[in-house]
Write a protein that binds this DNA or RNA. Structure first.
Lengths: 177, 177
DNA sequence: ACCTGAACACCGTTCAAGT
DNA sequence: ACCTGAACACCGTTCAAGT
């Protein structure tokens, strides 16, 4: 994973991003150091400053890309509510957890530290959507941090889906009343 | 806040913990440095090593105390389901968010990094309780990190309570069926 | 235009030495 | 028993200098 394309000239910025994602996935936000990213990209510790204003800027860039990718996958999973709201919700929840598992680097960059970013394209931002988001975030964080391990009987995906259904049912009931 | 009791002899360990909580509350996990904690306690950078094996040990100690305090407050708020499950749930959710707001230092130590701690005394650990926990954690994290700000119409406490009610209603319906 | 080398401040950590 | 002072490795960051 060390030598992708070029160091002395090629695409260093992308190489640094790739290295940073590797590091985040391996050791979390605390392990991400500009020097280590530079080392993996095969350049000097000062080189990254040609492409990023500093360590925080690198993490912000990762978070930005993370929200982009995340939003796209959630939207795809939701598929405008097809074939029905219940199934679409289930697919969206599964996609959320899958993202946290498949892209631990991006997820860590997105939620590892307090970032001041706009919300990830909620658009109309309905109440239920925010609830599901909170729920999914909580499940993902607690799963990643190992706080769910002691309770082996609880599968995170089922847990999330079940709770999400509850939120949806309530939202539907409110809409009727 | 600098000089509590004694430096050259007194209760340095507690002074370091107090200082660490201040720092966490002010600048988050990234700002917490052993040297800074030592500085606020009025001792040399090496002094903390008499009381903690290292930086991680200090954070772990804070997290441990955090889970203790947290568990106690949640239990108190729940009050064994009195006067009724719905009210008790509401009180528990409010207590959760209040804890994250009142004790930002403890909360950051508890969830800022992946810790390997036992679950905070869930005991029987029912499914609904885990869902509420996930939900509350998600709301708290997203609120703290500023991801809820763009949607001013959504009050975190109301959001959490509403979603929690949904989870409870679903759990009750399941129990009947 | 992009990268290296040297430099400075700062933090984690260790250890011999002080009281 | 508890703390200081000095020391080393390491990281963030800057800047003059190389190609």
């Amino acid at each position: 994973m060390q030598n992708k394309r070029g160091y002395h000239h090629g695409s260093l910025k992308q190489a640094l991003i790739d290295a940073a994602l590797e590091i985040l996935a391996e050791g979390g936000p605390a392990a991400l150091t500009l020097t280590e990213a530079a080392r993996r990209a095969g350049v000097s510790p000062a080189a990254p400053y040609r492409h990023f204003s500093g360590r925080d800027a690198l993490i912000s860039e990762l978070a930005r890309r993370g929200f982009e990718t995340f939003g796209a996958r959630i939207e795809t999973a939701w598929d405008e509510g097809r074939p029905d709201a219940k199934s679409a919700m289930r697919a969206m929840c599964a996609a959320y957890l899958k993202f946290a598992q498949d892209e631990p680097g991006l997820y860590a960059a997105m939620f590892g530290q307090a970032q001041t970013l706009a919300d990830p394209g909620a658009g109309g931002a309905r109440y239920a959507a925010l609830q599901i988001w909170s729920l999914a975030h909580g499940v993902a964080m607690l799963t990643i941090s190992g706080h769910f391990d002691p309770v082996k009987s609880a599968d995170p995906a089922l847990l999330l889906d079940s709770a999400a259904q509850g939120v949806m049912e309530r939202a539907a009931a409110r809409a009727k009343a």
